[in-house]
Amino acid sequence: MGKSAGQLVMLIVINGLLLVLGALISGGSFLSSYNLQSMASQVPEIGLLAIGVMLAMCAGQGGIDLSGIALANLSGVVSAVIMSTFVSASTDPSAFSIAFIAGAVLIGLLGGIINGALIAYLKITPILCTLGTQMAFMGLAVVVSGGKAVTVGSPALLSSIGNDMVLQVPIAFVIFAFAAALVAALLRFTPYGLWLMLMGTNPKAALYAGFPKNGVLVATYAISGLLSGVAGIIIAARNVNVKFDYGSSYLLIAILIAVMAGVKPEGGYGRVLSVVLSAIALQLMSSLLNFGGLSNFVRDFAWGLLLLTFLAVGRYRIAGFLPSIKRQTNPSAPSPQGPK
């Protein structure tokens, strides 16, 4: 579709522009390998959450996942607390790391399945459901951690995820890219992907066509939960400590990234590559402003401006390419509901 190619181009252009701008105001140090690596290692946490939000939105019917960061924190906290009772990070670093990673992933998956089940079977509106689970996850993390930060430590494997590079690219970013590629492949090549996008476009038609709607919904939120778990691992690896209330601002930022990536909040359309580029763009802009010593408030303003620009341009482009579609969905179209 012409629409998605256009958005992709726009995102690439924005990213390019930000890199150039950064280089200009910093006399080149913005593009130093240290900074590029530093920025690259800041993207994965929020990027993974944004992909989760994207999937939830694509499912349609008001799909969204507000519990991402809370689940990420919960995964880190619970996994750290439980695993450190069995394995010690200092005496058996690799075993601890593996146990921690497995634990975090499992908890993320479980949390996601809970979300999916509540939404699919109890038919709770996604925004209300994930708002509730967000508070539940955070509350559970407070209880398990006693309200304090939990030290995960720096056992070898985790430490290298947090700090090391492979071919000059931070390992955390590689993990993020890999996860994104996996999700993209899922959407492109599997029945799940087709079902998800069609369902988001027209849930009623999906029902009539016999799609396994509940299965798709649970899978969607489960994947989002899984990504949250991975985000929790990366947070732990980079910060050495995990805490129940880390990243509370990520909730809205993840949604911002998804919307800026052209994901349709009403469902049916979303592209992982766009989400990745969008996350990178927001990171670049944020770091750019920090480099320039500008107040954080300017950053919020700049993000808002970027989002509005993107949405405005997006509307015109869509109108330009596909006038027929916009009006075909007009309710007063000659639908077969004439006098009977």
Partner: peptide, 13 residues
């Protein structure tokens, strides 16, 4: 807009 925001910062660095 972005450049004009960054301009004052440019001197700092």
């Amino acid at each position: 807009a972005a450049v004009s925001l960054a301009a004052p910062a440019a001197t700092v660095v």
